[in-house]
């Protein structure tokens, strides 16, 4: 797996969002019941929470605050960009503002909905 230190800011935010989703599932009764009925036990919650904390601490405070704020507001802070369209609000993005440049630490947000844009 890619070491944390080599991830760009956008990649870290994506990882954070994926971990948050998994943790939310792990704490949600319906999912836990389904897992248990299928024969799967949840035993590593604390380890995942530690991973989440380590990841969050590796993200700059301003960017983390932006992620948390959008996450609280929309439930999904990062959204993919496909064909020049923000898949959070489905507004066509102006050329040049369609996503963060790949391989850089810059992140960009959708001017319409404010979500962080991510090129898959």
């Amino acid at each position: 797996m890619t070491p944390l230190a080599t991830l760009t800011a956008s990649q870290k935010l994506l990882y954070l969002q994926d971990l948050d989703l998994l943790l939310r599932d792990a704490l949600e009764d319906g999912t836990r019941t389904l897992w248990r009925e299928a024969g799967m036990q949840v035993s590593g919650l604390e380890q995942l929470q530690r991973m989440r904390a380590e990841l969050a601490s590796s993200i700059g405070p301003k960017l983390l605050e932006l992620y948390e704020r959008i996450h609280r507001r929309h439930g999904r802070a990062l959204v993919p960009v496909r064909d020049g369209t923000c898949l959070g609000c489905f507004v066509k993005l102006p050329t040049g503002a369609r996503s963060s440049p790949p391989g850089t630490d810059a992140v960009s947000t959708c001017a319409s909905c404010g979500r962080i844009l991510y090129r898959v």
Partner: peptide, 21 residues
């Protein structure tokens, strides 16, 4: 499209608990 990310979420799920049933 994103195999590293897909692999990562699968491995993280295994940390939560084995998916062998």
């Amino acid at each position: 499209e994103a195999p590293e990310e897909a692999l990562r979420i699968l491995l993280d799920r295994e940390i939560l608990g084995t998916t062998a049933v």
